[in-house]
C-alpha cells in the first residue's frame, strides 16, 4: 500500500500493514539546499525539491507545502518577517497595530493572486504531480479565532478577546474566517490532501471550555462550513483531549493531532473508533535524548496507540537543533514498532 492508502485505511478502520508515520520537516529544507531561509521559502520550487529529497532520505509518509505561520500574515499584508538561520521565522510587522485598524483591515478578494501565494502554489503543484497520488501532502491553516494573534500579537489579541468590545472582536474574527475559508479552498485546489487546522483558541489550555462552546466553536463551524474533508484538528501543540468529543459532535471533524502531553489512551477512548488520533512525540525533548531514548519513546507511543487502530504516529515541528541520528532512530523505530 502507498502511504496515502495506509492513511486512508487507518482513518476508515480498514486493515493496513502499519501505522502512518508523519514527520514534519519544514525548516530543514533550507539547510539541506544550503539556501538562506528567506530565499528558500520565497521559492516554491526550492521547497518542493527539499521536501522530495527529505522524503527520499528519511522515508516518512508526508510532505509539506511552503509553510511557516507568518505566511498567513504576509497574505494579509504583513511586510516584515524575521528569518533565522537556526529556527522558525517570526512575524515582525503586525498588520493591526491598534484596535482602530480593525475597521479598515480587509481580506484580499482572491488570496491566490497575492505574490506570497505563488510559492505555495508552485510548491503544491510540484508535490502534487510527483507524489500526490501516493503521499499525504500537508498544508497548515490557522483557525479564525487564533489568526488575529499573528496579525496583532498574542497579548493584544488576548486582551481584545477577554476584555475588549465584543463587536470589534467579532468583526475581526469574521474577516479572518473569510480568509480561512479562502485558504482552505485554495489549498485543496492546489493539491493539499491533509489540512492541519490549527486553533489554540480551541484548546482549554488557552481559554475556558465555556468560551470555546459559546464563542470559538461557532466560528470554527463557520471556518469549516465548506466541508471537513481532509481536516485535521490541531491545538498548535496545546492539549486537545478535553475538546475531542465536542469537536466530533459539533464540528464533525474526526481526525485529531493532539499535543505530546495529551494522554494517548484517553484520546483513543474519546475518539472510540469514530476517527483517527495521533501519538505525537515530544521533539523538543528529543533534542537532548540519546538514540536509545528516542527509540524507547517511539516504542512506548506505538505500543499505546496501535492496539486500537485508527492511530497515526507524528512529531511536532521538528526543531533544527535535532540531531540527525535521533531523526533516523525515531523513524526506524516508528516503522519497526508501528507494524501490525
Amino acid at each position: 500500500m502507498t502511504p496515502l492508502e495506509i492513511l486512508s485505511a487507518t482513518i476508515s478502520g480498514q486493515a493496513s500493514p502499519r501505522v502512518p508515520v508523519f514527520c514534519n520537516l519544514l525548516d530543514q529544507g533550507a539547510k539541506l539546499l544550503n539556501i538562506p531561509p528567506k530565499q528558500y521559502f520565497a521559492n516554491g520550487e526550492y521547497v518542493a525539491d527539499a521536501q522530495l529529497k527529505m522524503l527520499q532520505h528519511y522515508g516518512h509518509d508526508n510532505v509539506w507545502s511552503a509553510h511557516y505561520v507568518g505566511k498567513e500574515a504576509q497574505l494579509l499584508g504583513c511586510k516584515d518577517i524575521l528569518f533565522a538561520d537556526n529556527g522558525v521565522p517570526n512575524v515582525a510587522d503586525f498588520v493591526i497595530k491598534s484596535w482602530d485598524d480593525i475597521a479598515t483591515f480587509e481580506i484580499p478578494e482572491d488570496i491566490t493572486q497575492q505574490p506570497t501565494w505563488q510559492a505555495m502554489d508552485d510548491c503544491l503543484k510540484i508535490l502534487s504531480s510527483e507524489v500526490g497520488a501516493t503521499h499525504p501532502i500537508c498544508a497548515y491553516v490557522t483557525g479564525s479565532t487564533t489568526l488575529p494573534a499573528i496579525l496583532m500579537g498574542m497579548d493584544k489579541w488576548m486582551e481584545l478577546v477577554l476584555i475588549g468590545p465584543v463587536e470589534l472582536r467579532d468583526e475581526l474574527v469574521r474577516k479572518c474566517s473569510l480568509f480561512v475559508q479562502q485558504q482552505l479552498k485554495a489549498y485543496r485546489a492546489a493539491g493539499a490532501n491533509v489540512i492541519i487546522y490549527a486553533n489554540p483558541f480551541g484548546s482549554t489550555y488557552f481559554i475556558p471550555k465555556k468560551r470555546i462552546v459559546d464563542w470559538s466553536m461557532p466560528w470554527m463551524q463557520e471556518d469549516l462550513k465548506q466541508g471537513t474533508g481532509s481536516i485535521v484538528y490541531y491545538g498548535g501543540m496545546a492539549p486537545i483531549n478535553s475538546v475531542i468529543e465536542m469537536v466530533i459532535d459539533k464540528l464533525k471533524v474526526n481526525i485529531f493531532y493532539p499535543a505530546p502531553e495529551d494522554d494517548i489512551r484517553e484520546s483513543m477512548r474519546l475518539i472510540n473508533g469514530k476517527g483517527l488520533t495521533s501519538g505525537v512525540l515530544d521533539d523538543i525533548k528529543m533534542i537532548h535524548w540519546t538514540e536509545q531514548q528516542t527509540r524507547d519513546e517511539v516504542k512506548r507511543i506505538m505500543t499505546l496507540g496501535k492496539t486500537g487502530g485508527h492511530f497515526l504516529f507524528g512529531t511536532g515541528f521538528m526543531p533544527l537543533k535535532l540531531p540527525e541520528e535521533n531523526i533516523i532512530a525515531m523513524l526506524d523505530a516508528a516503522f519497526k514498532y508501528g507494524r501490525y
Binding site: M158, T204, R211
Partner: peptide, 13 residues
C-alpha cells in the same frame, strides 16, 4: 492543571 492562559493573563492584568 485545568487553569488556562486566559485566567493567568487576567490575574496579572
Amino acid at each position: 492543571a485545568d487553569t488556562n492562559l486566559a485566567q493567568h493573563f487576567m490575574t496579572a492584568q
